[in-house]
């Protein structure tokens, strides 16, 4: 496997922080995704966004770590979620995590691209086991297409 020039980002830890989904945010998320309001539980996909917002970095920060810009067509490639229980609206969760893998790939149609995977764990304050884990892979096109 080609690790590529960003392989040294593997193991990079985000500052971490706190995730809190307010009722209005859950309601708007459900509205935006054509779902009925899931309160008092957080919509499970909103857990992904709450985890990022509690991680201490923004999407822009992650893009910049890999020298990516929105103009290059960065996309989500894969998403994993694991739950011990549904998260609750209005509750505080501690977020920790970082980049777990960066690998370079290439294809005849897609050209060269990097896949960066980051994993975020959410715990109740002081908790040992995460109640949810969000793992996301972003695809960073590098624009070089094979002949």
């Amino acid at each position: 496997m080609d690790q590529g020039p960003y392989a040294d980002l593997t193991g990079y830890r985000f500052p971490g922080g706190i995730a809190l989904v307010e009722p209005w945010m859950n309601r708007l998320w459900c509205y935006a995704t054509c779902a009925q309001d899931t309160a008092p539980s957080v919509h499970p996909m909103l857990v992904y966004a709450a985890a990022v917002q509690g991680s201490g970095v923004t999407f822009q920060d992650i893009f910049e770590l890999l020298d990516g810009t929105v103009e290059t067509g960065i996309m989500v490639g894969e998403q994993r979620l694991a739950f011990q229980e549904a998260l609750e609206v209005g509750e505080i969760y501690e977020v920790s995590g970082g980049i777990t893998q960066v690998e370079r790939k290439s294809g005849r149609r897609a050209g060269t691209f990097d896949i960066a995977t980051f994993e975020l764990e959410l715990r109740r304050p002081g908790g040992v086991d995460p109640v949810a884990v969000s793992t996301t892979s972003f695809v960073f096109p590098r624009g070089e297409v094979s002949a």
């Binding site: 995704t33 054509c34 779902a35 899931t38 539980s41 957080v42 919509h43 499970p44 996909m45 894969e78 998403q79 994993r80 979620l81 694991a82 739950f83 229980e85 549904a86």
Partner: peptide
């Protein structure tokens, strides 16, 4: 996920997602 929750009984039913 909304489709699955509607069938399985709500957000508390979800355990693992890989898409």
């Amino acid at each position: 996920l909304t489709m699955v929750m509607g069938w399985a009984g709500g957000p508390g039913a979800l355990r693992n997602v890989h898409m």
